[in-house]
């Protein structure tokens, strides 16, 4: 097994006919008066890299806990590979929930041996995954001597044992330094490029935007959106302008023939125009109107902005 040397173009991202991997039907979980998950429906097909997005306490981990069989749902059902859940099905799924869970007094190899025995995986695979997460030199060291980042990498090694068909990762980059985050994202990206289905729970929008093909947004246990990430990313272009005199700039942009709307954000103006925006043309127009811009840039609405708008709408 080598997830490092696979080119994305060599493997199909998704087959023509979608193969159902996971189906959630009206899944709910209640803790006393708190409705952690509320009638959640979701379909995940083979090859999708599905992001489960939501602020802390939105029900992401509870949802994962239910579909992994460690929490009991209050109502609703879920089906793995089209079948009601049973322990043996989980051997086809590699999961990392919340934090890396290991016996601290055992070595990395011993801990992985336990997972390998449960999954019916050959011991040779242990070496391979340890190389993959760069822990091979520390394989015989006890886990309590590991840093959090190393434990997280060991958890990923455990998840990858036996080339699972599905990966479930709950906040996999939590507590990691930038280098660790980059490494973990790289591994996830490489695994996903082999056609492995990935379900990634995160509150980091940037992470989801970078890694996922599909996304479901949860807020207070309710699904607010589900679909391709591209669908959530606005095609609308926004021009960011700034000048010495913001008032003059503001009165000038209103005169633009393609003007649609604008918003003042600190010392910059965010301008939306009709049709495709042309920064050079707008700069020329403003110059003719006696405004010289100190900054012009163009960007699209990020997932973060759309996510926050969605949450604001649902809160109101």
């Amino acid at each position: 097994m080598n997830y490092n040397n696979i080119k994305a173009s060599e493997t199909p991202r998704q087959s023509e006919i979608p193969i159902e991997i996971l189906r959630l039907e009206g899944l709910s979980k209640r803790y006393g008066n708190i409705q952690a998950v509320n009638k959640l429906d979701l379909n995940i097909n083979k090859g999708q890299v599905y992001g489960l997005l939501g602020p802390n306490g939105s029900g992401k981990t509870t949802t994962l806990g239910i579909i992994l069989g460690i929490l009991r749902q209050t109502s609703g059902n879920y089906y793995w590979f089209g079948k009601p859940s049973e322990a043996t099905l989980y051997r086809r799924i590699g999961s990392l929930l919340e934090r890396p869970n290991f016996y601290p007094y055992l070595s990395a190899v011993n801990n992985l041996q336990i997972t390998a025995l449960i999954r019916g995986v050959n011991n040779a695979d242990i070496e391979s995954v340890l190389h993959l997460v760069d822990l091979y030199p520390r394989r015989n060291h006890k886990v309590h001597t590991f840093s959090y980042g190393m434990k997280q990498r060991l958890a990923l090694a455990s998840v990858l044992l036996g080339e699972p068909e599905v990966l479930i990762l709950d906040e996999p980059t939590n507590g990691l330094d930038p280098e660790g985050i980059f490494e973990i994202r790289n591994i996830i990206g490489n695994v996903a490029s082999t056609g492995t289905t990935v379900l990634l729970a995160s509150h980091l929008l940037d992470e989801v935007q970078k890694v996922c093909t599909h996304v479901a947004i949860l807020h207070r246990g309710i699904k607010k959106f589900s679909g391709p990430v591209a669908e959530l990313l606005s095609e609308e272009e926004i021009l960011e302008l700034s000048a010495k005199d913001l008032n003059t700039l503001e009165s000038a942009i209103i005169k633009l023939p393609e003007y649609l709307s604008h918003k003042i954000n600190n010392q910059t103006i965010e301008l939306k125009v009709k049709g495709k925006s042309d920064a050079a043309k707008i700069n020329h127009f403003l110059h003719q109107n006696g405004v010289s811009c100190s900054h012009i840039s163009m960007h699209k609405h990020s997932l973060e902005q759309n996510f926050l708008e969605l949450l604001q709408k649902s809160s109101s």
């Binding site: 992994l68 460690i70 322990a87 989980y90 799924i93 290991f102 997972t115």
Partner: peptide
Amino acid sequence: RQQLISGL
């Protein structure tokens, strides 16, 4: 819980 989600 880790062993249960691993398939035990």
